[in-house]
Design a protein around this nucleic acid. Structure first.
Length: 595
DNA sequence: GCCGTCACG
DNA sequence: ACGTACGTGACGGCA
């Protein structure tokens, strides 16, 4: 492959780095940046080039050769004053990736940041992709150069000239998209959310990812060996119970054993056959010994394959820590998501959950601090609905499920049984999810009519909640979207569908999104405030993860005492709601200990 | 590449 | 008669 000379002009629509460098002397207002990433590496996409534009026809492209970083170092050294000039606005698509790339070369991206990807996300969080080519096609009816290699995100298989053309056309698209998307953001009332929450979060997420989290690889390895032995025993037992050998992980083969060989009664169907999921097997376990063992086997196999054996592969060989990717433009509700690896679904329940969390450890001389919002979604529901009973329960700081049970079963709080509380807890969850009699009946294993009783009973008592749900659905019908506390909007296109199932599903989304989404807004603000405090006072404590209603920190031992009330206070005062926000906070040598 | 399943909030 | 709680990401099986 031909190596491109950095200081050559790439084609007549693109400019070389030297000329662009004149910008350092001739100040400009903004620069546009795009990085080309390839998906060849096993875990992370890695950058292979960077294009930069200061205006129409003034582009350059810098290839990044991982084996020979001399070229990019030279080029970036020239451009460094541009990147670090606080007076120049930096416009990009996925700015977090740019920040992390430049950090690798000792460059800080300073000044106002603008991100096309985040604008597109806020305008329509329902979209599954905010790739630049798709946004460009959609908003400026403009294609970006593609060939087979680019289509497959295999930029290592095509010529540098082709990548350069792709990169420069991409940066052109960013430049043309900026005013179009900015106007959309502003017209839809999303500017504050964009400027005060989402964009300040970009730098913080970059830092959290860079910080990473330490794991005890040896411990995970020991656990894996222990589990292998248990799985072998279970497999033998299962095959003997089935009377034959089969692949337990194949739903199709398992279905054959359960419903044809053992002739158990199927519970429900999937698209492809009879279901063998958790719920089904739990019910079948009443008829036969096998299903319970299958459940046992499945859960162990899952934990081993997804966590014990996989997490060690993600440990970065330079830092010795795991660096997840926190996605800011994925969920429809405003939550973050985590991938490569997903650190937001690390097991917690059961004996093995504790063991696995105990393998997420603090650096020597540090402690893990975990701070989680208590019942944040129900507190938000209380605020949004202004419901009398819900608000009173939280003002008195009573156990919310016990409080609901007391009203639902008309008994004193002190007389609420475990069973009543369990039912009330499920009903409370149901409210947040936009429950139906069927949904509740499945969750509680009761008849739909009985579930319907609970629901109508609940809504008679919690009139504010009932009104909130009705009004939210009504608003969604009228506006076509629902809104969170901080102005995040999610279009609900199917809300007026003539298909009952589709429409009801849309209604559940309409109800759930303001609740889940407002909680997402709140914790994002908490992250910004905490980061601000940590930076201003030069604390060595660092934020290392967000798990929807929980923030994880790694604090030097001598900062822990000071940090705990500080974090609690900061998180509890992010917003002034009709009910107090409550944060539970703990610390320890591991994530397990901090819970 | 889709499906079923299951880990989390 | 139908298929249903909200939001994610990753794994193995199987075409």
């Amino acid at each position: 492959m031909k190596q491109l000379n950095l200081f050559d002009s790439i084609d007549n629509d693109q400019q070389d780095v030297k000329k662009l460098d004149e910008s350092v002397k001739n100040p400009i207002n903004q620069i546009f940046i795009y990085i080309v990433q390839t998906e060849t590496s096993p875990h992370k996409a890695s950058p292979i080039g960077l294009s930069l534009s200061k205006g129409k026809g003034q582009n350059c492209y810098i290839p990044i050769n991982h084996h020979d970083t001399k070229n990019i170092k030279n080029a970036l050294e020239i451009l460094k004053p541009l990147f670090e000039d606080k007076g120049i606005v930096k416009v990009g698509h996925n700015v977090k990736a740019i920040i992390i790339l430049l950090n690798r070369f000792g460059i800080k991206l300073k000044g106002d940041l603008q991100d096309i990807q985040i604008m597109s996300y806020l305008i329509d969080p329902n979209r599954t992709s905010h790739n630049l080519d798709i946004i460009a096609q959609n908003y400026i009816q403009r294609g970006i150069y593609v060939n087979e290699g680019i289509k497959k995100m295999r930029f290592d298989t095509i010529s540098v000239e082709d990548v350069a053309r792709y990169a420069c056309e991409s940066v052109d698209a960013i430049r043309e998209l900026l005013p179009v998307l900015k106007k959309e953001i502003s017209d839809r009332g999303l500017l504050k959310l964009y400027q005060d929450i989402e964009m300040p979060l970009v730098n913080i997420l970059a830092r959290i990812e860079s910080n990473g989290i330490k794991i005890d690889i040896n411990r995970l390895h020991e656990l894996s060996k222990e589990m292998s032995r248990m799985l072998e025993e279970l497999e033998t037992k299962i095959h003997s119970l089935a009377g034959q050998s089969f692949n337990i992980n194949s739903p199709r083969q398992l279905s054959h054993i359960l419903f044809e060989v053992l002739k158990l009664k199927p519970v429900r169907k999937t698209k492809t056959g009879f279901s063998t999921d958790n719920d089904t097997l739990s019910q079948l376990s009443l008829q036969h010994e096998l299903p319970a063992e299958i459940l046992n086997y499945r859960s162990l196999f899952k934990l081993k394959g997804t966590y014990l054996d996989t997490l060690p592969d993600y440990v970065d060989k330079h830092t010795g820590r795991i660096h997840t990717t926190l996605n800011q433009t994925v969920t429809a509700t405003g939550r973050l998501s985590s991938s490569d690896p997903n650190l937001q679904n690390i097991p917690i329940r059961g004996e093995w959950g504790s063991k696995i969390r105990a393998a997420f450890i603090a650096e020597k001389g540090f402690k893990i601090i975990s701070a989680d919002y208590s019942q944040i979604e129900l507190r938000i529901l209380a605020h949004l609905s202004n419901d009398e009973h819900l608000i009173e329960a939280f003002l008195r700081d009573t156990d919310i499920h016990t409080s609901t049970a007391s009203l639902l079963f008309k008994v004193d709080k002190s007389d609420v049984s475990k069973e009543m509380r369990r039912i009330a807890k499920t009903v409370n969850f149901g409210v947040i999810y936009g429950m139906s009699p069927y949904g509740l009946s499945e969750a509680l294993r009761i008849s739909t009519s009985e579930a319907g009783e609970y629901i109508s009973n609940y809504f008679t008592l919690y009139k504010g909640v009932k009104d909130f749900i009705d009004k939210t659905i009504q608003d969604a019908r009228q506006d076509g979207f629902v809104t969170t506390l901080f102005g995040r909007k999610r279009p609900i296109p199917e809300i007026n569908s003539t298909n009952t199932n589709t429409r009801q599903q849309a209604e559940r989304m309409a109800v759930n999104t303001p609740i889940q989404g407002s909680a997402a807004d709140l914790i994002k603000i908490a992250m910004i405030k905490m980061d601000d405090t940590l930076t201003k006072h030069s604390y060595k404590t660092r934020m290392i993860l967000q798990i929807h209603d929980e923030l994880l920190f790694e604090a030097p031992e001598d900062e822990v005492k000071e940090m705990i009330p500080l974090i609690k206070k900061t998180m509890e005062t992010v917003a002034d709601l009709k009910v107090p926000l409550k944060v539970d906070i703990n610390h320890g040598d591991s994530w397990g200990d901090a819970h």
